[in-house]
Design a protein around this nucleic acid. Structure first.
Length: 280
DNA sequence: CAAGAATCCTGTCAGC
DNA sequence: TGCTGACAGGATTCTT
């Protein structure tokens, strides 16, 4: 999926186009993504004014002036399309289309349909079932070495799996976990418990830095993903290990002799990329 | 309770 | 060119 930096980028794009606008017309396409759409979604959105946006983990919350917020998750392949009204027919796999009072269409496109859409009372957003169990936001001050250590201590799983677990810290996905572990020089196979303490002191700034850098770059453009305005994020050019099996890990690495290059392994069914020489 | 596997779905790409 | 299998940003649900 779009991970935290991509979701943040999408949320900002939606805010720029939708904040203050009225949803003059709503088209519901196929009404079942991961779960069925909430009852009466179209009517509950139509005529509402968009008052603001918020991101929590990989979720987007679009607040309406009727006391409800639209909760969006992009899954693996979800993206938001923003186009002038006259641009015509819904795109392939466009499951929800919001038409604004100033002539724009915002579409939720998701071929794999792992994404989700729900409505939640605005005053109780964080009590939503999907948000209630999430760990801390990685870019907030409360996410520090002490907090991460507490979350990792005693856990009998690789650090890679622990960081993908959204209860540990919310918003990381496969790419940015790989990149953060590289920056912190920690092997994805290292036990989570052994990262609690001093190593968490290295890992927390690495996580914050990679996310901050990626947001500044407009996220990474993946196969199925572009920013809402159609621009391409360019952080994928800054990946140091993800998708680079066999390459050397860059200028910081002395390279041969003894360099085996970036290795791809599979952990809990997902690819991990790391440099066995630099990451321990 | 915790950890790993299976699962949902469509599209793309490498290899034959 | 067409077929097949592996793989893809996620996270819940099911098994162990």
């Amino acid at each position: 999926m779009p991970e935290l930096p991509e979701v943040e980028t999408v949320m900002r794009g939606l805010r720029a186009r939708l904040e203050g606008r009225v949803l003059a017309r709503v088209r519901v396409g196929r009404p079942d993504l991961r779960w069925p759409f909430p009852a009466g979604l179209g009517q509950r959105l139509t005529g509402a004014r968009v008052t603001g946006f918020r991101r929590r983990a990989k979720y987007i919350l679009m607040r309406l002036d009727r006391g409800e917020s639209l909760l969006l998750h992009l899954g693996m392949s979800g993206r938001m399309l923003i186009a002038p009204e006259q641009a015509g027919d819904p795109a392939l796999h466009e499951h929800l289309s919001l038409h604004t009072d100033d002539g724009w269409r915002v579409g939720f496109v998701d071929p794999r349909r792992f994404g989700s859409v729900d409505l939640v009372p605005t005053e109780a957003e964080d009590a939503h079932k999907l948000l209630a169990g999430l760990g801390p936001e990685p870019l907030e001050a409360a996410f520090d070495a002490v907090a991460l250590s507490a979350a990792l201590r005693g856990r009998n799983t690789p650090i890679k799996a622990a960081l993908l677990d959204q209860r540990t810290v919310a918003g990381l996905g496969n790419i940015y976990v790989c990149e953060a572990l590289f920056r912190a020089r920690l092997s994805p196979q290292r036990g989570a418990d052994s990262v609690a303490g001093a190593r968490a002191g290295r890992l927390v700034p690495a996580i914050k830095a990679v996310l901050t850098d990626a947001i500044a770059a407009g996220g990474s453009s993946l196969r199925d993903y572009v920013q809402p305005d159609g621009e391409l994020g360019y952080f994928q050019h800054a990946w140091q290990v993800y998708g680079r099996a066999g390459e050397t890990c860059g200028a910081a690495c002395p390279g041969p002799p003894g360099c085996v290059g970036i290795r791809r392994i599979v952990q809990s069914g997902r690819s991990s990329f790391y440099c066995p020489r630099r990451q321990r």
